[in-house]
Computed example of a mutant assay.
Amino acid sequence: MAAFAHPLSACLQNFVSLLADLSTAVHEHRVSMPPEKVRNEYSRLKTRSGDLGALQSGRSSLAFRL
């Protein structure tokens, strides 16, 4: 994995952790950061990074193409 893959993997994992934490958070935290909006942003990042090949390795990777 190249320079893009490790930070992106960490970011995606942080989204998963945030969603897990929000599921047990107090109401005011869920209101200020609605889980459905966080889930939507997670999905958008995952889709976009997949389209770009940011998590791929070898010739199909974003780093190789750049």
Score class of each variant (00 low, 15 high):
Met1Gly: 15
Ala2Ser: 15
Ala2Tyr: 08
Ala2Ile: 07
Ala2Glu: 10
Ala3Gly: 12
Ala3Arg: 10
His6Thr: 15
His6Val: 15
His6Phe: 15
Pro7Glu: 11
Pro7Gly: 04
Pro7Phe: 08
Leu8Met: 02
Ser9Cys: 08
Ser9Phe: 11
Ala10Cys: 05
Ala10Thr: 13
Ala10Gln: 13
Cys11Leu: 14
Cys11Asn: 07
Leu12Trp: 01
Leu12Thr: 01
Leu12Phe: 03
Gln13Ala: 15
Asn14Pro: 01
Asn14Arg: 11
Phe15Val: 02
Phe15Tyr: 05
Val16His: 06
Val16Ala: 15
Val16Asn: 15
Ser17Pro: 01
Leu18Ser: 06
Leu18Pro: 03
Leu18Tyr: 04
Leu19Ala: 02
Leu19Ile: 03
Ala20Ser: 08
Ala20Val: 12
Ala20Asn: 12
Ala20Glu: 14
Asp21Ala: 14
Asp21Gln: 09
Asp21Trp: 06
Leu22Gly: 00
Leu22Asn: 01
Leu22Glu: 06
Ser23Trp: 04
Ser23Thr: 09
Ala25Lys: 08
Val26Trp: 07
Val26Glu: 15
Val26Ala: 14
His27Asp: 15
His27Glu: 14
His27Ala: 13
Arg30Cys: 04
Val31Ser: 04
Val31Tyr: 02
Val31Met: 09
Val31Asp: 03
Val31Cys: 03
Val31Ala: 05
Val31Asn: 04
Ser32Asp: 04
Met33Phe: 13
Met33Glu: 03
Met33Asp: 02
Met33Leu: 14
Pro34Asp: 05
Pro34Glu: 00
Pro35Ala: 11
Pro35Leu: 06
Glu36Met: 10
Lys37Gly: 03
Lys37Asp: 09
Lys37Gln: 15
Val38Cys: 01
Val38Gln: 02
Arg39His: 15
Arg39Val: 14
Asn40Phe: 12
Asn40His: 14
Asn40Thr: 13
Glu41Gln: 08
Glu41Gly: 02
Tyr42Gln: 14
Tyr42Ala: 12
Ser43Met: 12
Ser43Gln: 13
Ser43Lys: 13
Arg44Pro: 00
Arg44Ile: 09
Leu45Met: 10
Leu45Val: 12
Lys46Trp: 14
Lys46Pro: 10
Thr47Gly: 10
Thr47Tyr: 11
Arg48Asp: 13
Ser49Leu: 07
Ser49Gly: 14
Gly50Trp: 06
Asp51Thr: 13
Asp51Trp: 10
Asp51Lys: 12
Asp51Ser: 09
Leu52Trp: 06
Leu52Phe: 10
Leu52Asp: 06
Leu52Thr: 04
Gly53Pro: 01
Leu55Arg: 13
Leu55Ile: 05
Leu55Ser: 06
Gln56Pro: 00
Gln56Ser: 06
Ser57Gly: 03
Ser57Cys: 05
Gly58Val: 01
Gly58Trp: 00
Arg59Thr: 05
Ser60Cys: 05
Ser60His: 08
Ser60Asn: 04
Ser61Leu: 00
Ser61Ile: 00
Ser61Phe: 01
Leu62Phe: 00
Ala63Gly: 02
Ala63Val: 10
Ala63Asn: 01
Ala63His: 08
Phe64Gly: 07
Phe64Tyr: 14
Arg65Trp: 02
Arg65His: 04
Arg65Tyr: 09
Arg65Phe: 07
Leu66His: 07
Leu66Tyr: 11
Leu66Ser: 09
Leu66Gly: 11
